[in-house]
Design a protein around this nucleic acid. Structure first.
Lengths: 146, 146
DNA sequence: ATGCATGCAAACTCTTTGCAAACGC
DNA sequence: GCGTTTGCAAAGAGTTTGCATGCAT
C-alpha cells in the first residue's frame, strides 16, 4: 500500500506505528516537509513521539534510497521528498513554499551531463529560487510559512 | 581588480585586509569553498583571523548578491561561489568535490520554467550527485576531502 | 524471547550574536 | 574622531547519539 513501508519491510526492518505514520505523511504530502513539520503533524496522533525518532526514520529511508533530501529552502532546515522522479523544485524565497514542476528538457540535460562529464550520476537536485505568483503580487499573508 | 571588493566599496562598506583576502580566496578558488575552508586557507596569513569574521563577510557578500550559496555537498556545510552565471554543479558523493559544468540546455530550461510557472525566477541551483571519474574507478585516495 | 526501535536528554556541529577593542575612512 | 569591523566567547539552531525501556517479530 505504501512503497516506503514496503521498502522498510524488504530491508528486514520493523514496521512500527511511528514509521508507518512518518512514511504515510511523507508519501502523501506535497509540500516537501522537514523533520519538524512531520513531527508536528503527527504529534496529535502520537503525543509521545520524539523528534529523534522522526530523524532516525528519515535517515533510514534516505540510506535505503527511498527518499531524497532537498537541502534547505532558505529556512535552514533539511526538506525531504518521496518523489524520486527527476523533476524541478520551485522554492519561493518569501513564503518558503516548495512546489514541483515538470519539464521534459531536464531528461536531456541529465543525459548530456552523464555523457560529457564522465560522472556516474546517482541523483540530482534542480531548484529555482524566486517569488511565487502569490508573493510576487504582494500576497504575503495566508501562505506565509514562517 | 576584484569585482567582489568593488561591490563592497560601491555599497559604502569598509575594505579591510580580512575582507580583501576573503574576496580574493573566493574569487580565485574553483572548489566552492566553505567558510571553514576559507578560514583555514587564510590562517597562515592572518593568525588572529576569526571564523566569525569569515561568516560575517560571506553573509555581507551574499546579501549584496555578489556570491551564491550552494547548500551542502554531503558534508553538512554551506558552500559558496562567486560565479553567478547559471551553470551546473557536479558533486562527488565520495570525495565531496564540487566542479562546474557548462550545458547550454539549461538556459532553455530556465526560460521554460519562468514562462510556464509564473514565478519570478531569481536564481537557481542545479546539482547532480554521483561518483566523479576518479572515485568511480576506486581512486579514493589523493583527492578525498575528508 | 530476542534484539531492534522508541523516547528522553545530552552532546555535537555549524552558524550567529554581543560586546569591547581596533582600525578604515 | 566617528562609526564600522574585528575577534573572542557564548549563545542558538538543527541534527545526532547514548542508553534504558518498550515493542515487533
Amino acid at each position: 500500500m505504501n512503497h516506503l513501508i514496503e521498502g522498510l519491510k524488504r530491508a528486514g526492518l520493523r514496521i512500527t506505528p511511528q514509521r508507518v505514520a512518518i512514511c504515510k505523511t511523507l508519501a502523501e504530502s506535497k509540500d516537501h516537509p522537514t523533520a519538524m513539520m512531520i513531527y508536528h503533524a503527527l504529534l496529535p496522533q502520537f503525543p509521545t513521539l520524539s523528534l529523534a525518532t522522526v530523524y532516525k526514520t528519515l535517515n533510514v529511508l534516505k540510506q535505503l534510497g527511498l527518499v531524497h533530501t532537498l537541502g534547505d529552502a532558505g529556512d535552514g532546515m533539511e526538506h525531504y521528498e518521496a518523489d524520486l522522479q527527476p523533476h524541478i523544485n520551485l522554492v519561493c524565497v518569501r513564503c518558503h513554499q516548495v512546489v514541483d514542476f515538470d519539464e521534459e528538457l531536464i531528461e536531456r540535460v541529465e543525459r548530456a551531463v552523464a555523457e560529457r562529464s564522465g560522472y556516474e550520476i546517482q541523483g540530482a537536485r534542480i531548484v529555482y529560487y524566486g517569488l511565487c505568483p502569490r508573493c510576487k503580487n504582494g500576497h504575503t499573508n495566508g501562505t506565509e510559512v514562517k
